[in-house]
Every structure is written in structure tokens, then in C-alpha cells.
Simulated assay, not measured.
Amino acid sequence: MSGRFLSIGECMVELSQAGDSLLRKGFAGDTLNTAWYARACLTKDWRVDYFTALGDEAMSDEMAAFFDKNNIGTQFVRRIRGKAPGLYMISLRDGERSFSYWRDSSAARQLADDPDQLRNAIEASDIIYFSGITLAILSADAAAGLLAEVRRAKAAGKLVAFDPNIRPRLWSSYEAMHATITEGARSSVMVMPSFDDEAMHFGDASVEDTIHRYKSLGAKSVIVKNGAAGALVDCDGKSATIPAVPVEKPVDTTSAGDSFNGAFLARYVETKDASEAARFAAGIAARVICEHGALIAWDKLGLPAA
């Protein structure tokens, strides 16, 4: 099977812990992380593209070269004069992370400002992936335009996947956050939330409540990530609880959910078996949290040799 996977969002410069008070520079961001792990897990017949906006300075050039080097397509990357990527730093304590951000003038805030390019990219793709963070960094008009395009893709039978990835600090108000994330889910075929976010910000009392709420909005499939409790999969008319893969001592949980999403989508489009895809994705996520940083080398994922 072959196709085209399009991930839409913001890639940032990442500073992560490297020991002895040193920091390691990398590139990451929730939707780029998912594209990275989808690329690792998909067959070579699949193309993986990243839709974002970069600036016209050296760091943007380096980021675009990083995409190219790792077979993540840059055909739909906009370059904006006078702009630069955002930056964030990870602070770790006992494997749990906190973040400091510098992203207010990030070029990616304008990623959806060219509606023709956005439509062309989505029309050229078979899987379209975006997140609540993608929506949060855009202007209200640009977010509405993106949602209109993914609704068109959903109506055309494409697999539109959405992770609400709720980050209140990025939103102007709770009301705007709730309304826009709800529209993101309504515009998608598959919603891939994390239960702790949904419980905290939407008041869901159980994983089943999260599934019911998103399916009532029109999502055909809901895959709820629930940390050490595993994942609850409601897909293709079937429901199953998939256990997490135990990890004795996590090193860095930065990309646990993003890697799960990328691995799940990669395996699901090949097998059409959501439970098997979730088991596979749980194994990938377990390996990812045993390493520092959001993007770990593909040879550490335990994948069969190509």
C-alpha cells in the first residue's frame, strides 16, 4: 500500500537536557514528532510531508535541511521573510517534563495564511493530521480556514486525524479553546486525545465519557491515550482496552503521545486493525520515553530492518 501522510503544525527549536548542565539542540513540535514516528513506521511506498512555515534565516535553513535529510517532505513548507522558528526548552524532574517557550513571533503562526497552498497540500494527501496546538497558534481566520479544508477532506473520504493536545496557555480564553477544539474534532474522522487533558479541561469523568463526547460530534473513531493505564480504542465499531508497555524508569516523556499517534496511524493504514495498531504504538511509545528528547533515532525503536 502507498499514499501520502500530511502533518500540519509548528516545528520549533528544541533545547533538551544533555547532562552536566549542558543542553542539546534539536528540532521538535507535536505534529513534527508525529510525522517523525509515522515516517519511521510507514513503508517506503508512503510519502510523509510536513506543512508549516519557516523564516528566511539560518535556523530555518537548518530546520528545512533536517526535514529533507530524514525524508520528511518540504514541498509544502512556506518561507516568510523576516521570520524565524519558535524555541522551547525542556526541564526534567524524575522523567516528567516542563517547558519554557519563546514562540510569539514564530513563522509557523502564518502557516495557513495561503489558502491555495493549504488546499493543494490537503488535496494531494491521503492522511491529514493536525492538533489543538496547530489551531491555537493561528489567527481566528486562519484556524477557520484550516478547519474548512479538513472538513472538505473528511467529506471526500480522507483520513483526517486530530489530537486535541490541550495547552490552555496558547489560547486567548477557555471559551475559545473549548469552541475551537470542539470544531477540530467535529471536522475529523479520528480523534486521538489524552485522557488527563480531557478530564482536566472538559470535565470528563471517565475515558468512556471522552469517547462518547467526541463520537457525538461526528468522529468515527476515538483513540484515548491514558498513560500507564494504556489506551481505549473505539474504532470501526469495535472497542478494546490496550495495556501500556511497562517501563521501569522513564527518562523523558516529552513525545510519548506524539510517537503513539504516528506509530498508530502508520500501522492502522496498513492493517486496518485498530487494536493491533494500538499495541504496536504502545511499544513504540515505551521505547521513546526511555531516551532524551522528542525525536529518537529510528534504530532505537526496535523496528525490523528495511
Rank of each mutant, 00 (worst) to 15 (best):
I127A: 06
A176M: 12
R167G: 05
A136R: 15
F195E: 02
S125W: 05
H178L: 12
F130P: 02
A124V: 10
E175Y: 10
I166T: 08
T180Y: 06
V189I: 13
D114G: 07
A124M: 09
W171I: 08
T180I: 09
E183L: 12
V150T: 10
A161T: 08
A155Q: 14
S173F: 05
V150M: 09
A124D: 13
R167A: 03
F130A: 02
L147Q: 11
S139G: 15
T134K: 12
E183M: 12
F162V: 02
N120R: 15
N165M: 01
S187P: 01
I122Y: 09
I181K: 08
S194P: 07
S172V: 10
I181H: 08
P168D: 04
M190T: 04
L159E: 01
A161S: 14
P193M: 02
I128Q: 08
D141N: 00
R169A: 13
P168S: 02
A140M: 03
E123M: 06
L146H: 10
R169D: 05
K158P: 14
D196F: 13
A142Q: 10
S172G: 13
D126M: 00
S125N: 05
E175P: 08
A155P: 01
A155K: 15
I122W: 03
A155E: 13
L170C: 07
T182L: 01
I122H: 04
K158Y: 10
R169K: 15
F162S: 00
R152Q: 11
A161G: 04
A142M: 11
S172W: 07
T180L: 04
P115E: 02
A121H: 00
D126H: 14
G145I: 00
A142G: 06
L138W: 03
S139A: 11
V160Q: 12
S172C: 04
L146Y: 07
A121F: 10
R169P: 01
A176R: 15
A161M: 06
M190P: 05
A144H: 10
Y129G: 05
V189D: 14
V191D: 00
D116A: 14
F162P: 03
T180R: 15
R151S: 13
V189R: 15
S173T: 04
R151D: 07
G184C: 01
Y174S: 15
A185K: 11
G132A: 12
A136D: 00
A140S: 13
S173K: 12
G157D: 05
P168N: 06
D141K: 07
Y174I: 14
V150G: 02
I181P: 06
A142I: 06
L170S: 03
I166N: 05
A179T: 14
F162W: 05
D196E: 08
N165D: 02
D196M: 13
F195A: 00
W171L: 06
M190L: 14
G132D: 00
H178S: 13
T182M: 04
A142H: 06
P164A: 03
A179R: 14
V160N: 09
Y174L: 15
N120Y: 12
A153W: 09
V191N: 01
L147D: 00
H178M: 02
W171M: 09
I137T: 07
I133N: 07
T182I: 01
G184P: 04
S173W: 06
R152W: 12
S188R: 07
S188N: 03
I122L: 01
D197W: 09
A156E: 12
K158N: 11
A143D: 00
F162N: 01
